[in-house]
Write a protein that binds this DNA or RNA. Structure first.
Length: 623
DNA sequence: CCTAAGGATCCCGACAGTCG
DNA sequence: CGACTGTCGGGATCCTTAGG
């Protein structure tokens, strides 16, 4: 699956989406491992094949399948194209020259497959003979490669027996591998020249050789342990299934498959077998309610807050200070870095270094070397510690893990520490809108005193079932015991950023205007007034707050629902939807047939008459 | 200064449908 | 049958934001 399919998939499962960039990074990490795994599995299969003492092999598009083992012995990809190279050529950007280039072939497309076959035969011949150490034999084998690839076996030492040559084995294994590749990299999608193609073919080869076990091996390499979750869930299954359910199921399926092949009936055997509720099927839990808090289930762990100071921002920077807190226990040590402290880092931390002396704000401070300090930290850490810190996922954790690995202390650290929690991510999940919006804190405190239990919530997209063709996304919903619910619409006018709203209202185009008493009010002909009224109508609320913020001023105005205006908005929207949007959606009425006259409104003649009478006003308001 | 992640956007290839 | 167009999806870039 690519980014789009992955996002569609996780969305269908009610799981938070992953960004295409993030997915791409993960693909690169995992992809390299899969390629390495595929090559290793090919080497193993080749040795297995060699032990079986038979050298017939069937070159596919770019794979060599062992006749006896049925496994993929080798695979190669050729591409005349590289996406990155194309981009570099187009942009003439020399800084990108060093990349994982996928262009490795310059001949014609027709000659590509024979070239691959010859190349792989060459590797096979070398592998076959290096273990024997017979140089002459190797030379004659290489000479035989090209005639062999084109059907002439007169020079082949291992192909002397023509009867043996006639037996090229079943092509089933080859077709099977081609099928797996086609499911992972379908030709309907353009993977040519991309890194992704290599990873996809490698994963298909790995799957062919070792089954889906390759996923577990790749996970282990990347220190991912989904099997612990699997084991946990397996314990929930009934004992008879836990002990031999999988084995029995596997042997039953194999037996059914072999019967189907022999008897030719592949369709009726298992169709009606799913009558009882299967213990292997688990219901996907429903999405938690909107107001549910997302809690961290830390179990029996010790919460430690920690922070690092470093010589700079790079991943290769040295630690200059480690500080941590566990309950009332505190840990703080300065570390003498091996590299200079950048000026920017010194400004933040106050730490400078002259020779072997470390200074904080000009005063010498006691310090240790990195290894001593890390050892002391590990000793200080409580058992089952979980480290909390801000942006640790992207910064602190990487720095400290690198330092621990360099000092060969990573295993000791892991024996004490269960993991890290990035409070940046936790904050993103828990931060209410009021701390994100630029409203002045004193003003917010004042509102809290005036309104009992004041809450401001970030909300999404609203649709009113009575007018499903209009939607609204207020900036928030404010709730209090005295006034109930109200929508909030916040504007931060960029062009009036440095002005007071009093001055801004002098601009005749500004949406706040002074009334007879000199008070600022939202202009009722302005589109923002229509916006708030539409939000109130859709959310079915009686009032809302229109908030305008500049660096010098804050305006909060209560807007009361205007039923007359809401009816007018509904009528116009319905008219627009029926005469313009619906014909376009259903039949591309406007975009496909440019010469046709616009539809006359046939559904609601009353609207049509009303529209023609108040055409001028409507044009202004529709905007 | 470095690095990773997320969102928005653009570009391009493959395919299906339409039209002359 | 070929030219053209629209849609979909993958790949890549740009910008912003955290951390010292």
């Amino acid at each position: 699956m690519g980014p789009v399919q992955t996002v569609n998939f996780v969305t269908a499962l009610n799981v938070p989406c992953i960004s295409p960039n993030n997915l791409k990074s993960r693909e690169r990490e995992i992809g390299k491992t899969i390629e390495e795994y595929a090559l290793t599995s090919c080497k193993k299969a080749l040795e297995e094949e060699y032990l079986m003492n038979s050298y017939n092999f069937i070159p596919g598009h770019a794979t060599v399948i062992g006749n006896l083992s049925g496994k993929c012995l080798h695979f190669r990809l050729k591409s005349t194209d590289c996406r990155k190279c194309n981009y570099i050529d187009e942009k003439d950007d020399a800084s990108e020259k060093d990349h994982d280039c996928r262009r490795n072939y310059s001949g014609s497309s027709n000659a590509m497959e024979p070239a691959l076959a010859v190349e792989m035969d060459m590797l096979y011949a070398i592998k076959q003979n290096t273990s024997k150490g017979d140089i002459e034999n190797l030379k004659s084998t290489i000479d035989a490669i090209v005639p062999h690839a084109f059907g002439d076996y007169s020079l082949c030492s291992s192909c002397e027996n023509t009867n043996k040559l006639a037996n090229l084995g079943s092509s089933q294994s080859n077709e099977s591998l081609n099928f797996v590749i086609s499911t992972k990299a379908p030709k309907s999608k353009h993977f040519g020249g991309s890194q992704s193609l290599g990873y996809r073919v490698a994963s298909a080869v790995s799957q062919k050789n070792d089954g889906r076990n390759y996923v577990v091996e790749v996970n282990k390499t990347h220190r991912l342990y989904p099997e612990s979750e699997r084991e946990k869930r397996q314990k929930l299954l009934p004992q008879h299934i836990r002990e031999n359910g999988g084995t029995k199921k596997g042997s039953r399926l194999r037996s059914v498959r072999s019967k189907e092949i022999r008897e030719g009936d592949s369709y009726t055997s298992a169709i009606s077998s799913i009558e009882e509720e299967s213990p292997y099927i688990e219901e996907i839990p429903s999405r938690p309610a909107e107001n549910d808090n997302i809690n961290l289930h830390l179990g029996n762990t010790a919460t430690v807050f920690f922070d690092l100071e470093t010589t700079g921002l790079g991943i290769s920077c040295d630690i200059t200070q480690i500080a941590a807190v566990f309950g009332t226990n505190k840990f703080s040590q300065y570390v003498m870095p091996l590299q200079p402290i950048t000026i920017a880092a010194s400004k933040v931390t106050g730490l400078t270094r002259f020779g072997n002396v470390l200074y904080r704000n000009g005063i010498p401070v006691p310090h240790q070397n990195s290894k001593e300090c890390l050892k002391e930290l590990i000793t200080w850490l409580p058992e089952n510690a979980v480290l909390f810190g801000h942006n640790v996922k992207s910064f602190d954790a990487k720095i400290i893990i690198k330092a621990l690995t360099d000092e060969n202390l990573i295993n000791d650290f892991e024996s004490k520490c269960n993991g890290v929690v990035d409070t940046l991510h936790v904050l993103e999940l828990h931060t209410p809108i009021e701390t994100c919006c630029p409203a002045d804190q004193p003003e917010l405190d004042k509102l809290r005193k005036e309104h009992e239990n004041l809450k401001v919530e970030e909300v999404g997209f609203f649709i009113n079932p009575n007018v499903p063709f209009i939607g609204a996304s207020p900036d928030g919903i404010v709730t209090c015991d005295c006034c109930g619910q109200a929508v909030v619409e916040i504007k931060c006018p960029f062009c009036k950023k440095h002005d007071s709203l009093e001055n801004a209202s002098d601009d005749k185009n500004f949406y706040l205007k002074k009334d007879n008493d000199g008070n600022l009010k939202l202009y009722t002909k302005h589109m923002y007034y229509y916006q708030v009224q539409t939000q109130l109508g859709i959310c079915q609320m009686e009032s809302g707050y229109f908030v305008v913020w500049t660096e010098k001023d804050l305006h909060i105005e209560q807007i009361v629902f205007n039923n007359e205006l809401w009816k007018e908005i509904c009528d116009k929207s319905k008219h627009l939807f029926i005469t313009a949007i619906l014909p376009e959606l259903i039949g591309k009425f406007y975009s496909r047939l440019p010469n046709r006259q616009p539809l006359k409104p046939v559904v609601n003649n009353y609207l049509c008459e009303k529209e023609s009478k108040s055409k001028d006003n409507n044009e202004q308001n529709t905007e």
